[in-house]
Design a protein around this nucleic acid. Structure first.
Lengths: 343, 343
DNA sequence: GAAAATAGTTATCGCGCGTAAAATTTAATT
DNA sequence: AATTAAATTTTACGCGCGATAACTATTTTC
């Protein structure tokens, strides 16, 4: 490795024998220079380890190669997983992802968009809160920066949305539950901020009607992101009160289900589809911990990878075409039934 | 809000009636200008919403106000929690945190340090892998940038380390387990990359000796970060083979314990300290999910907040003093026993 | 082998701000 | 009111690189 320290592109030009403008071209796109010069540059590069100053580069470029990635809550393994998938897609395409969590706080979502604005990103991948999001702030942001939303939709805002088809996936699990035992009741929070929750409720109603069963929806109070706590406390209360009309409960998401499973355990109830079981509990999302609950949770798996990659590639397409989409795109992937022991 | 768009500090100087150098001073430290001028500036600021260009600022500043935060794996709620605490501490002190995950991959840790170097951070808070980390790369990085490590120590490297006192906390739980039932066996991975694991094993040996019991350590094979999987597969295997000498197992960390709990459930064993229970299982770390396992996990809680804040404040002290520490500091916080139903 | 196309060079400007020194104003002190 | 210290303004330069124009060198084409 290097002898003297290279301080800037000028000095690197001197030691590599390549002119500065050509180096500049190379760093912006290695394939834009002739093969032989590229090899010369890379030879020098391996000798002197020089890297262009990020700040100087981004100050002058019309658009940076930064991609902002905003998720509502990194403490939720669901979002840390999908956030990671998105990051990888960005890196693979030669962009620099910047991952920000809104920490379960819609105000932080706004703050994150503000921070991102200062970084002049080429585009942003946003998993918004949904109803709790500041729709106006997001819309304003979208005017300045190309944005693709994923996981949760904000109707009509942003270039495109990529998520899971809740109607398909709820039908899938409702059908399974009806076929394999008593039809499911539906368990959710009273005021879910996530729009998927509303779609899932609606999908449950339709699916139950389609299969000729009466729907039973149970909504419980609770604020914030401590879904397991709410599932345990309120779910446990409903169970011990005998509030559920059937022995099967479909939870609006896995984290509520995880909480409810722990409550059932506390109550000494055996959960599952065996003969000796008192009830069945199912979730939605295939949370990373769902296979380690007691019993392991039957759920609907979202296709993390497909959603992340489609969201990213859609954004890249917009960025590289340098034009906004003429029409807002919505892409929904199918969920997959994951059968485990809980239902 | 603003009429015309302010494009740079020059223009903002014009509309605010304050000279550009003074504005520059203000943005670097609002308290460095006279109260009356600060008010003038802030009045103009609320009218014209102008923000200095991040890239231009950082290009010229000797040191930026960026703080790199590197954790081994954001998918692990333990690290997303402590990462968040660290972020908050940075923001509160007026720094800009940049959170990077090494995704369970030591090579990525190196890559993250390389990326950070390009951002010329004022300092870095690093939770390293430990033995799996590239010690040489970290040491080299520490020569250029002040670094405080937390959670896992890399002996002798970096300015300071902040973590949990494993000897204190293991003694705490071993004492409790011995007092309340059969003395614990110890369950861990054969080749743990995390140095805490080694300390915990050592601490277990010492604690058992102190209490006059024979130690029993069970090490299982397994690679990577899928601890729950390893705990479930290998832990389940040991349980059904009757390999544990006593009815009590202390796991090296909560995630192994979570896996083992699910294995015990599968085997139809009741875990806990009740009379009808077949075995006890305890963990270490107080993982966010530990209170929702079946049964809820007895464990040792690390003081996330204290560790994060001490690590951050130590780093700030180094940064602001503009001198390296004369002597490497190590701070260990006590763990707290969290008694739940599993042991 | 000459013309055309491609790639590289030199030269120069601009980006938005930090920073330093000198000149000037303002506030605090006696 | 005079003295002094502190804050602000003016002026001027530099950071490292992107971008472009006008040339020159190299490679391709027939």
């Amino acid at each position: 490795m290097g002898q003297q320290k290279i301080r800037n592109m000028e000095e690197f030009a001197a030691v590599s024998g390549i002119s500065r403008p050509t180096l500049s071209k190379y760093f912006n796109d290695p394939d834009s220079v002739r093969r032989s010069t590229r090899e010369k540059i890379e030879a020098a590069l391996s000798q002197y380890d020089y890297r262009p100053n990020v700040y100087a580069v981004n100050q002058n470029r019309r658009k940076t190669r930064n991609i902002g990635v905003v998720v509502p809550n990194l403490s939720d393994p669901f979002f840390s997983e999908i956030g990671r998938e998105v990051e990888l897609a960005c890196l693979a395409a030669g962009y620099s992802p910047i991952l920000l969590s809104s920490h379960g706080n819609p105000a932080q979502e706004r703050a994150n968009l503000d921070s991102l604005r200062a970084l002049k990103p080429a585009g942003v991948l946003l998993a918004p809160f949904g109803k709790a999001s500041d729709r106006e702030a997001i819309a304003r942001f979208c005017r300045d920066v190309p944005v693709v939303t994923f996981d949760a939709n904000v109707e009509g805002v942003c270039e495109a949305f990529v998520g899971t088809d809740n109607f398909q996936s709820v039908e899938l699990i409702v059908e399974y539950l009806c076929r394999s035992g008593e039809p499911p009741c539906f368990f959710e929070m009273k005021t879910p901020s996530n729009p998927n929750a509303n779609k899932r409720r609606q999908a449950y109603l339709e699916a139950m009607e389609r299969h000729g069963f009466a729907p039973h929806i149970h909504q419980v109070p609770g604020e914030g992101w401590n879904f397991e706590e709410i599932g345990a406390t309120e779910g446990g209360r409903l169970i011990s009160a005998g509030a559920f009309e059937t022995d099967t409960v479909l939870c609006s998401n896995d984290r509520l289900a995880i909480g409810m499973l722990s409550a059932a355990y506390e109550l000494g109830l055996r959960v599952g589809h065996g003969k000796d079981c008192a009830m069945r509990i199912a979730g939605q999302d295939d949370h990373p911990f769902s296979r380690y609950t007691c019993p392991p949770l039957t759920t609907i798996a979202q296709d993390y990878g497909a959603i992340a990659n489609r969201a990213a590639s859609t954004l890249f397409r917009i960025i590289e075409s340098e034009t906004r989409l003429t029409e807002r795109e919505e892409t929904l992937f199918d969920g997959k039934l994951v059968m485990r022991a809980s239902a």
